[in-house]
Design a protein around this nucleic acid. Structure first.
Lengths: 211, 211
DNA sequence: GATCAAAGTAAGTAGATACTCACTTTTATG
DNA sequence: CATAAAAGTGAGTATCTACTTACTTTGATC
C-alpha cells in the first residue's frame, strides 16, 4: 500500500519524459537536468524512468526527435501557406521565433547537444535537424532568386547562414532579458534589415553622401 | 624528494589556469571541464589549484574577465584604426571572427555561463561583456547613421542584435563543420548581405519584377 | 477470478567531482 | 643561513549522478 498511482503504458511515459525535459530546459541549464528531476516532474521514482528509456542519452534522442518533428512540421505548414517565397521565408522566421518563445529551452538544448564531445545518437539527430532546416532555407531562397524576387547575385548559402544567425541572436537577447514578448517584437525589426539585405545587391560605398 | 617542479607565484598560476580553461574549451564541452583537467594541463595536482582560486566559479570569473579584456581591446583597436564608421564596423566584425577562430571555446563558454541558473559572479561578468559590446555597436551604428553613411530610418538596436546574431550563426556553422578557415570565408560573405541591409532602407515588395 | 507480464518502488552501487587537510618542498628575506 | 610564508603533494571526504536490482502493485486476457 505504498502507492496508488496508475500504471501507464510505456509509450505514454516516454512522451511524458520528453515533455518533462522540454519544460525543465525552459527554466534551467539543460546540462543540469538530471534523471531525478525528470522523474520527479513525471511523479515517478527515478528508477522507474529506466523502465521506459535504457539510458539518459536515449531520452535526449527522444527530445531531439520531438523538436525536429514539431519544428519542421510547423515551418513547412507556414511556408506552404504562402505563395510568395519571400513571404514564405518571413513566415518561417516568425514561426520559428514563436516556437522558441513557446519552448525557450529548445535552442539551449540544441546548442548543448551540438557541442557534446562524443558522437551520441542525440547529437547526430540535432545535427540532422540543422541540416534539414538549412536545406529548406536554401531551397526557398533559390526559388525566390529564380523568380526574380531577390537580387540575382545573392549568395544563398550566406543568406541561409545569416537566417540561422538571426535566430541565434534573438535567442541570446532572450537569454539576457528573459522576455518572450520582446523577442517577438525584436524579431520583426531584425527581419526588416535582413529582408533589405536580401533584396539589395552589394552596393557602392556612399549611398547618400552628406550634403 | 617527491617533486622537483618550481613553485610559481599565485599571480602566474591564476593566469595559467585561465589559459588552460580557454584551451580545454576549444576542444571539449565547457561544462565538462573539471578542476582535475585544469590542474593536469598546468602540471599540478588538483589540490594545488585551490591554493590560487577559492572555488571553481572564481576560475570561471577569471576566464570571463580574460575574454572581456582581450576581445574588447581588440575590437576597440581595430575600430579605432578606421575613419569610416562602416569600415570600423566591418573591422570589428572580422576581428571578432578572427578572435573566435583563434579561441573556438570562447563563444561556447559565454553561452554556458549565460544559461547558468544561479546568479554567479562569472555569469554577471559574461552579461556585462555582452552589454559593453552592444553599447559599442550602437555607438558606431549611430555615428554612421548620423554621418549619412547608413539609411536614415535604420533601426539601430535591431542592427546591433543582427550583428551579434551574425556571429552566433557563424559559431553554429563552425560547431557543425569544425573548420576555422571556412568560418572566416563565410564571415566575409555574410557581411556582404548584412552591409546591404544596413545601407538599404525598408523597400517595396517587388524590386525587379519577372519579365 | 486466476495469472502473468508490464510498470512502479525503494534501496542500493560505482564512479566522478569540488573541495579539504596534514604534511613537505621551495623561495624570499632579515 | 635560519626561518617563515607561499606553493605543492597526496590522500582524504561528502555529495551527486546514472544505472541496477529484488521485490510489489497494476491491469489486460483467458
Amino acid at each position: 500500500m505504498t502507492s496508488r498511482a496508475k500504471h501507464l503504458p510505456s509509450d505514454e511515459r516516454r512522451a511524458e519524459a520528453v515533455e518533462a525535459v522540454v519544460e525543465l530546459a525552459a527554466r534551467s541549464n539543460p546540462e543540469e537536468i538530471t534523471t531525478s528531476a525528470i522523474a520527479a516532474r513525471m511523479k515517478l521514482t527515478q528508477g522507474a524512468l529506466f523502465r521506459h528509456y535504457p539510458t539518459k542519452d536515449a531520452i535526449w534522442q527522444g527530445v531531439m526527435e520531438w523538436v525536429s518533428d514539431r519544428l519542421l512540421a510547423r515551418i513547412d505548414r507556414l511556408a506552404g501557406a504562402e505563395a510568395d517565397p519571400l513571404a514564405a521565408l518571413q513566415a518561417m522566421f516568425l514561426g520559428h521565433v514563436d516556437f522558441i518563445a513557446e519552448h525557450p529551452g529548445v535552442p539551449r538544448m540544441m546548442a548543448g547537444q551540438l557541442q557534446n564531445a562524443g558522437e551520441t545518437p542525440a547529437k547526430r539527430m540535432a545535427r540532422t535537424l540543422v541540416e534539414n532546416y538549412g536545406n529548406r532555407l536554401r531551397r526557398i531562397l533559390a526559388a525566390a532568386r529564380a523568380e526574380g524576387v531577390l537580387h540575382p547575385t545573392l549568395d544563398i548559402e550566406a543568406a541561409a547562414a545569416l537566417f540561422l544567425g538571426m535566430i541565434q541572436g534573438l535567442v541570446m537577447q532572450h537569454l539576457i532579458h528573459g522576455d518572450s514578448a520582446r523577442m517577438r517584437a525584436d524579431a520583426a525589426r531584425v527581419w526588416t534589415i535582413y529582408r533589405a539585405g536580401l533584396l539589395a545587391g552589394p552596393q557602392a560605398r556612399e549611398p547618400s553622401p552628406v550634403p
